[in-house]
Structures are given as C-alpha cells and as structure tokens.
Amino acid sequence: MADTNKTKSHKWEMVIDLDRCTGCEACVVACHAENNIRISGEDEASEGRAINWIRIERYWEGEYPNVQTRFMPVLCQHCDDAPCEPVCPVYASYHTPEGLNAQVYNRCIGVRYCGNNCPYTARQFNWFDPHWDPPLEEQLNPDVTVRQNGIMEKCTFCVQRIRAGKEQAEKEGRPVRDGDIIPACVQTCPTSALVFGDRHDPESRVSQLARQDRAFHLLESQGTHPAITYLKRIA
C-alpha cells in the first residue's frame, strides 16, 4: 500500500559561490537556530570548542597594500568517499542512499576517530551536555534531536527539511521539485551564494551551477569527492 509514487533516487548536493559570499555569517546563525546547536559561550569558544556546523573561514588575496579579504563557508562536505565513515566502529557515521553523510547520534559512542579523519575538520564533538540560557530553550526545533554529552555531530544538510519536503510531495502525490527543499543556511543567505538541490536532476539549479568552469572542490587531491562544489572566478 505504501510508496504509491516511487520516484527516482536523489543525490543532494550544494554549490557555494565564493564570488557572492560576503562573510555575513547569516548562514551560521540560521544553522544554529534550525539545528538546536548548543550555545557554547566565551569560555568554550576560547578553548576552540564552539560548535558550528557551518563556519566562515577567512583568507587574503593580493599583496599589501592591495589586500582583499575573502570568505569561504566551510561545512560538512558530504563526501561520496568520506574518510570519516568507514572508520566508525559502530556505523554511527554512514552513507545514505541519497548521498548524505549521516550521523546517527544514538549509535555514537564517542571514539572520535571520524573527527580526526575528516580533512575539513567539519565534525564537532559534544564535550558536555548542552545548555541554553533562558529564553533560548523556548525556541528549540522539535524536528531535531538535542545531542547529548559525548557524541559527534555535524551538518546534516537539514535532513529534517529534506524529509519534510519529501513527505509533502508524497501527500500531494507529486515528485519533489527543485527548490522544494532548502536547508536553513541556503534559505537565509542574502546574496544567494548557497544553492542546494538534487544533482540527479540535470535541470536543477545546483546541477547547472556545478557544471560551470568556475567549479572546484575543497582539498580535491584527497579523493574524497565532496558533494559541495565551490565556485570561484580566477582573477
């Protein structure tokens, strides 16, 4: 009875246009709000333990005095050949059929090998139980697990939104359309530097952008085949 409208498989990918990124960090805030990311505070941040699923890295182009600051949002690259996945002894980190690099929180026992083996340092660990100062605990997203002390977490491509989008499509009896599913960071980006979509659909925006000749992948030489394509004009 179930699955009356079986659609073809998806492959979720993202394109980040570095030429458009202004480094405003709206995506970081949106991600915190959407995904119940714990508030770390100054102390933990100074110890390097602030959890950000997406972070803005800074680098400089040109020689003084013609220096320009450039920004690069870095998040979990959802690699096809993810180095973090096979090293997990309990399958907490695994690859979903839709190309997501999934982290199952209640399987994780916190050996932290995945964190070491991620060349992008995209994985974050819960060193303590989470805590929100009032009234922030009133805004928790009911669709996202609150992660406990002792486990790994990282960007999920807002898997709850992907699921909601697919359920909606199922209710309406139609395939998922391009633009139906938007992660929080993509939704909030004021310059539309982030684009999300189904790479199996050749007409989707993400597929069209990823085919551009400005495209590159982060640490491409590592052979991890990331699902995130960066766009950058070479000056």
Partner: peptide
C-alpha cells in the same frame, strides 16, 4: 560531567 574535562578540542580529538 563530560569528556570536556580533558583538554581535547577540535581538531585534536585524540
């Protein structure tokens, strides 16, 4: 209290 009682932090997980 949590494994945070160690001085570990990203990227030094071990």
């Amino acid at each position: 209290t949590g494994i945070g009682q160690t001085n570990l932090h990203p990227p030094i997980f071990w």
